Deep mutational scan, measured.
Amino acid sequence: TIEDAIKKLLKLAQKGQPYTFGDFTVTSEEEAKKLAKWLKKQL
């Protein structure tokens, strides 16, 4: 689910690992949080 993807994304971001989700490449926890907010709006 999208919720699971968001959780995984935040965990990876906390470890400092870049994470690619579709067109987004997230390289920081701050970016992960922005992406998570955006994804929730898409639901």
Rank of each mutant, 00 (worst) to 15 (best):
T25G: 05
A5E: 12
K7Q: 07
A32P: 01
G16I: 11
L39E: 00
K7F: 05
D4K: 07
Q14A: 13
E3C: 15
T27K: 04
Y19A: 11
G22T: 04
Q14P: 03
A36R: 04
E29N: 05
E29K: 07
A5I: 15
T25S: 08
P18M: 08
F21S: 02
T1M: 10
K41T: 09
T20Y: 04
V26F: 05
K34E: 10
L10D: 01
E29F: 13
L9E: 00
T25V: 13
L10A: 02
L10M: 08
K7H: 09
Q42H: 10
Q17W: 14
K11W: 13
L9W: 11
Q14F: 13
L35F: 05
K11C: 15
D23P: 13
T20D: 11
T25M: 09
V26N: 06
A32L: 09
G16V: 09
E30D: 11
K41A: 11
W38P: 00
V26P: 04
S28P: 02
Y19K: 01
D4N: 08
Q17V: 15
F21P: 01
Q42G: 05
A32G: 03
K15F: 12
L10F: 05
Q14C: 14
F21G: 05
K33P: 01
A13P: 06
L43D: 02
K8Q: 12
T1W: 14
A13R: 04
E3W: 15
K41H: 10
T20Q: 07
I6V: 02
P18E: 09
K7T: 08
T25D: 02
V26T: 09
E31L: 11
I6L: 10
E3A: 09
Y19R: 01
T20G: 01
T1C: 05
T27A: 09
T1F: 09
L43N: 03
T20C: 15
I2H: 02
L12C: 15
L35M: 02
T1S: 08
Q42V: 13
E31G: 03
K34R: 08
K15A: 12
A13F: 10
K33T: 05
E29V: 11
W38Q: 01
K34I: 07
S28K: 02
L12D: 08
I2R: 01
L12T: 05
I2W: 10
G16W: 09
Q14M: 14
I6M: 03
K40F: 12
I6G: 00
L10Q: 04
L10N: 02
V26Y: 06
K41D: 14
V26K: 03
W38R: 01
L43R: 02
I2Q: 02
E29M: 15
T20V: 09
T25A: 08
E31Q: 15
T1K: 09
A32E: 01
K11M: 13
L35E: 00
A32W: 06
S28L: 04
L39P: 00
K8W: 14
K34S: 07
G16M: 06
E31M: 07
K7C: 14
D4G: 05
L43W: 09
I6W: 05
A13L: 13
D4A: 10
W38E: 01
Q42P: 01
A36M: 12
S28D: 05
K15E: 11
L10W: 10
K37D: 14
A5W: 15
Q14K: 07
A5N: 01
E31F: 08
T25W: 11
Q42Y: 06
D4L: 08
T20A: 08
I2Y: 12
V26G: 02
Q17E: 13
E31V: 14
E29P: 12
I2C: 14
K41E: 14
Q42I: 12
A32V: 07
Y19M: 07
E3H: 12
K37W: 11
K7W: 09
K7P: 00
A13W: 13
K33G: 04
V26I: 11
D23Y: 14
F24S: 02
K33H: 10
S28Q: 03
L10T: 01
F24M: 03
K40H: 11
A5Y: 14
L35I: 07
E29G: 04
Q42S: 04
K40G: 08
L10E: 04
Q17N: 04
G22W: 13
A13V: 12
K11N: 10
V26R: 03
W38M: 05
G22Q: 04
K34T: 04
L10R: 01
Y19V: 11
K7N: 09
I2F: 09
S28N: 10
K41G: 06
K8A: 13
A36G: 03
K33I: 13
S28I: 12
A32S: 03
G22F: 13
